[in-house]
Write a protein that binds this DNA or RNA. Structure first.
Lengths: 359, 359
DNA sequence: CACTTTCGTTGGATCGGTTCAAATTTTGAC
DNA sequence: GTCAAAATTTGAACCGATCCAACGAAAGTG
């Protein structure tokens, strides 16, 4: 079969068809960019020449340089690209980001990389007008790289309480976590376990409060602080609350629960720092015939749609994910230099995965 | 609070720091592109100048023009951008596309538009090395636009049996649909209904076989042909099989089932042209206390992961979605002009949504 | 010390367009 | 038929880099 994609170079430029049509390149440019100001006869002649020479229209590469604006925003993460399509939180966020982009006609470039050198290069060479940075993991490095580009950028998921110089949109993780913990203490729970998000890029396993305080990712740290502040308030010895650091996937969550429920004093309440973990936990508990919320209550964090249809439906702290996405796009596109940090409210949504402490 | 994003122009160019450092722009360029060939003393001086002037590294816009390659592939659809994150089929496809891109270090640009003029402009001005075109809907227009760019592109979901000049990756829809229908006829079913994908951009409602034959989208047409070829083979009068055209969402599917089950002779088997429709159908049937597969069997098409965990799990025709994505990326990136059309095999996966015809 | 290498640097050409002030042609009015 | 106004067209400048042939200086050789 004949080749259907031409692999040959396309050396036909605007200048070529200008010459062929016997006009200046300025006029040729106008034919495509502002056809109305070119006399019809000339316009047709140029278009005919373009057609004849197989010209595919002005190359955006050229236009770009002059125009300055790419009209696309980059969305960056330290995870593999498929994260955007597989992680529930990311998906909701991306759906709202993409709606905001659609509304303004901006495109979206997904930026990521398997390894770190690639990441740097990808960020440096991304053709975008600004970045939205997903900070779930490897956040600080990403923020650093994005900042070096000197383009407008917004970090999603407030990172670092110390670094006030980066624009960020997030929620009050401490307050949210507090809400989750208080809900459970009010139900009479006294024995807790925490499923934690990554602390650093270091795999998974049981961890301690001290480790968590050193967490690279402030979201993880703040959520733990929120949990423990509330637990301490009702005189629960937080030093004895097991914390298991996961990488937010099924394997590590299940390993975590294996570990937690191997102990003598099993928890009646599980605080999961993400809905994804909470949902995996629900699966594990069902598999082990542990009733939810009869034996164990589970409270998640994020408010992804899957939580509403899980078995049982998940009690969780919902973040205004869509709103965050919308604001992020707005901050990039209407960047007037005034945007800084913005903290959005979270909300406790009680569904069926939490109930009174047994006995 | 002080502005955290500088909205000011960034007039600092490579040439500026070259002048500041007292070197030629050629040398300045080398400092960033090939630092090792520049004498250390000079390199440091240039870097210091860059730092001092707030230079964010060579602007990719400039590099791009010279280099020619964008190192990104565009993925285009006629749907809103959020389609990529919400539709199950699209998500699986995108996950595999993005994995393939990750592996080769290529970026992904999402291209779409609310309205059609925008679509054209977006395709024309997308900074990409090639396009992967989602043909589920509005396919032909998209293919046309993509082709005009004279960039390598691949259509996903074989469109149009007539147009042999476009590279495409898809499955044999006729054979797949035949498999689905045969599965049901072998279970003794005689009364069928078809939930059809869009025929044109025309909303939803009951339709006829004649309408379907004129379908703009060959996938829709071919699947119907496949269904009917098999039904005819076992002497079912296909003229009496109701066909309801949906737009692949809950509302139109439910309306379709309302319509179909309002008739005197209700079907015992539903052929859905997508898993998404089939899953919505399952919901509708459950809501109406119609047992699946006791009263009605449902067979989908696509093989999205959700089908494996639905209630009941969905019998369906699975397409090698991931493989298609991989091939598409390969076709764009290793574009040697030899790629043409490729048809991948489908497979019937029997789960619990199909069973023997009642009585 | 003259002569060839080697290393580092320079500056012009180029990528493919857009833009705009100036030049030219056309049109309209008298 | 003349002249000003309006409509088109031109061509140079520019966008921000990379590339490369040529060149100058330092190092090595006989």
């Amino acid at each position: 079969m004949a080749p259907l994609i031409s692999a040959k170079t396309r050396p036909v430029r605007l200048a070529d068809i200008a010459k062929a049509a016997g006009v200046s390149h300025g006029t040729a440019s106008n034919v495509f960019a502002r056809p109305e100001i070119v006399r019809e006869e000339v316009r047709e002649r140029v278009k005919a020449a373009a057609e004849a020479m197989g010209y595919g229209g002005p190359d955006p590469k050229g236009r770009l340089l002059r125009a300055g604006k790419v009209n696309a925003i980059g969305v960056a993460t330290a995870e593999p690209l498929s994260y955007f399509f597989e992680d529930p939180f990311a998906r909701v966020m991306m759906a709202s980001i993409s709606q905001a982009c659609d509304a303004t006609g901006a495109g979206i470039s997904l930026v990521s990389a398997a390894n770190n050198e690639q990441l740097a290069w990808n960020i440096q060479s991304a053709l975008v007008d600004g970045f939205i940075v997903f900070c779930v993991d490897g956040g600080s490095k990403l923020v650093e790289l994005a900042r070096e580009r000197k383009l407008p950028f917004v970090a999603l998921d407030l990172d670092s309480d110390d670094d006030d110089a980066v624009a960020a949109i997030g929620v009050d993780n401490i307050a949210g976590a507090g809400l989750a913990a208080r809900h459970l203490t009010e139900l009479g729970h006294r024995r807790f376990a925490v499923l934690a998000l990554p602390v650093a890029d270091s795999g998974f396993g049981p961890t301690t409060r001290e480790q968590m305080e050193k967490a690279l990712y402030s979201g993880t740290r703040d959520r733990l602080r929120g949990y423990f502040a509330e637990l301490s308030r009702v005189d629960i010895d937080v030093e004895r609350v097991p914390i298991y650091e996961t990488v937010n996937d099924e394997e590590s969550v299940w390993a975590g629960l294996d570990h937690i429920f191997a102990g003598a004093e099993t928890p009646t309440a599980i605080l999961a720092m993400s809905d994804r973990m909470a949902l995996h936990a629900l699966d594990w508990l069902r598999k082990h015939d542990i009733s939810v919320p009869g034996d164990v209550s589970v409270v998640g964090f994020d408010g992804v749609p899957e939580g509403a249809v899980s078995k049982p439906p998940l009690t969780t702290i919902v973040q205004p994910i869509a709103e965050m996405g919308r604001l992020a796009v707005k901050a990039i596109l209407e960047n007037d230099g005034s945007f800084s940090r913005q903290s959005l409210p979270v909300e406790l949504v009680v569904r069926a995965s939490s109930g009174p402490s047994p006995a």
